[in-house]
Nucleic acid binder design. Structure first.
Lengths: 374, 374
DNA sequence: GAAGGGCCGAAAATATCTTTCAAGTGTGAC
DNA sequence: GTCACACTTGAAAGATATTTTCGGCCCTTC
């Protein structure tokens, strides 16, 4: 049942077809036959939205009324320019201000000054705030080119979201001791995103491809890592085991070395070390290297000692660190991305055997979860 | 419900009086004190939700025992749906999807697939499009954390505007078996970045703060996790140990339970499980809960069984998954971010002791690195 | 100073959203 | 296999919000 959502993205393009099996879907369209050209032009998102299907942005059935030529009502609505106000709302307010009455100006002013705040208000609320009436608010919305206040409000919400997202990257500062917890979350997330981007940008895909090729055909795989990198090593080991490869992550340096000397050509050894100079990891890699195994280093210091014994070097990124943000944090993020790339690449290469293995391991775990609660 | 706007209205200082006097000229809105009060007014709207509809359902098994001592937060509802989602709506849909009914899933799917299009629809229109009823649409909006459909629609409009504004996450295609390795790297990195953003956006900072407070003063900390989550548990354990806390990550369920019964008030137990229903993790948490320890759950299913025994629930994000991108991958990324936040928060709180401890552990490792080659 | 035109807001009318309630549906117990 | 139960669902009633109507007031013009 959950799989409904996995393909959601792909199914999306045809909402009417996939989502609404019932013929009722057409009702909306039939009820509001032909939105006046004005409405079509006004639709805030209407122009870009690829979903022409539910075009019936059924705001009001009487839209057609406005289209009637020679409407008795004087030029309340300047049908001349009615483009949706995307972000140029403030400019539009200024442009149209002269043609506005006093009350309308008050409304327009409030809207331009605080889109986000106004978006949270109902027509009554905005009327009270500006000391005017609902009717005036609606008139202002019309003047600004929207069918009604409802649509203006929607546009306002969009504008507010844009504005807010614009000043999002203001949290790039370092984490301070007295940062509120919300800032900590934002900064950590931002930093890790940055680390990921850096890593992806700097990762040598040729080296990666070579490492993947070696892993895919390896008879046996040993992975070395200690400390924080040890967990990454175990993560990789777990993953490779799941797709049927004979992988083992060593955290004990002595055992790692004694196992490394068993390796030979056709085997693969992977060392994970951020500093590139962790003796406990280099030693087993060297042993493996000397015995003819293909060796891979995942390190943040490609110029470090570990590279001497590595056939393929995968570079992880080094983010700025601080007292409240130890290097282990970003290096781990970076290493895990590399590990994921390795795993995915190998899975691709060995899809015939990996897919069933993955399915089997998933199956095997199912019974360990208590029955769903819903 | 009308009282929502009363604050806004009353806060606005004598609307007619202050706003009216100057009829002419500049549209400058500096005069309006509106922004702050208005923005503030949005908050209550969400949390205050007049109808305690969620309340009865999720009566978690906490017998009156509230959070840890010194927890600064008032007795708020234990449910996590406090904030009106910003832009992480797709993630929220994924997280909550399993707990939805079929009809609600259809609605959620439509919303996630085409925010812009749905924002243009009334509740009736969306109901017809998805072949459901208005009631279902409203229920879905509630489940997603909004007071009603109206607010969901507003958020949708904002989301649509953001997407269109540029940073459109267009290339969200799934990883295919025949993707070149460079694409794999790019897609994985992008997905993980997305996961981080989602997690950060949906993380309940109140719960997080409470968990941090509990950890900072804990006499002893036990962490439970198996499988992929086991590595995350160990990561957290390692980190906390480094700043001088008595933390231990258990991967053996039996030992975990036998240790859990040793815990008592003032201790903290943390369970990490993506599914929220991993028996091997729930059992020790329950034992700890029953013995009076403060319990924390880090899970992707806040409505899962594990939450019954959790004083504080930290929700991780659920990214879309596929054959080449197992759930374990994104859940791990998300969990690690939460863990990092916990760690950093605790470090802040215990800076006096944590800083020297960190320095000492760094020092202790120095000699294990071979001399740099640079 | 009076007449006319247009702005404005109160309230009615309409649309939209929310809640209630009873029927339908699947599930598990016996 | 049948029954009872709980849950889901949509239709319709009820509440709110938006739009329209209409008449009073102010300002301009002669």
């Amino acid at each position: 049942m959950k799989e409904i959502f996995t393909p959601a993205g792909s199914v999306a393009p045809s909402p009417a077809g996939s989502v609404a099996p019932s013929p009722a879907g057409s009702v909306a369209g039939s009820r509001y036959p032909a939105p006046a050209p004005l409405a079509a032009a006004i639709g805030p998102q209407g122009s870009q939205s690829p979903h022409g299907s539910h075009g019936p942005r059924a705001s009001h059935g009487k839209q057609g009324r406005q289209g009637s030529p020679g409407s008795p009502k004087p030029p309340l609505t300047p049908t001349t320019d009615a483009p949706p106000a995307p972000a140029a709302l403030a400019a539009k307010v200024r442009t149209l201000a002269p043609s506005m009455t006093r009350s309308m100006q008050r409304v327009a002013e409030a809207v331009a000054a605080d889109p986000a705040g106004c978006a949270a208000l109902t027509v009554t609320g905005l009327a009270e705030l500006t000391g005017t009436s609902e009717a005036t608010v609606v008139r202002t919305a019309r003047l600004l080119g929207y069918p009604g206040y409802r649509d203006l409000r929607l546009a306002l919400a969009g504008l507010a979201a844009q504005q807010q997202s614009g000043r999002a990257p203001s949290v790039t500062a370092d984490i301070a001791v007295d940062d509120p917890i919300a800032d900590v979350v934002a900064k950590l997330a931002y930093d890790e995103q940055q680390t990921l981007a850096d890593t992806a940008a700097n990762l040598d895909t040729v080296q990666l491809g070579a490492a993947v090729a070696a892993l895919a055909t390896a008879r046996r795989i040993d992975i070395y890592g200690v400390g924080a990198s040890g967990l990454v090593a175990q993560d990789l080991g777990q993953k490779l085991l799941r797709i049927g490869l004979l992988a083992h992550a060593h955290s004990d340096p002595h055992l790692a070395v004694t196992n490394a000397v068993q390796l030979r050509s056709g085997d693969v050894a992977i060392a994970i070390t951020h500093s590139g100079s962790t003796g406990d990891v280099i030693e087993p890699l060297r042993a493996a290297f000397d015995h003819g195994a293909t060796t891979v280093a995942i390190t943040g210091r490609p110029d470090g000692p570990v590279s001497q014994y590595a056939d393929h070097i995968l570079t992880t990124s080094t983010a700025r660190e601080s007292e409240l943000r130890p290097a282990a944090m970003s290096s781990r993020t970076s290493q895990l991305l590399v590990v994921d790339c390795l795993f995915t690449g190998v899975t691709q290469r060995t899809y015939e055997t990996a897919a069933p293995a993955l399915a089997a391991s998933y199956e095997a775990l199912a019974h360990r979860h208590a029955p769903r609660t819903r």
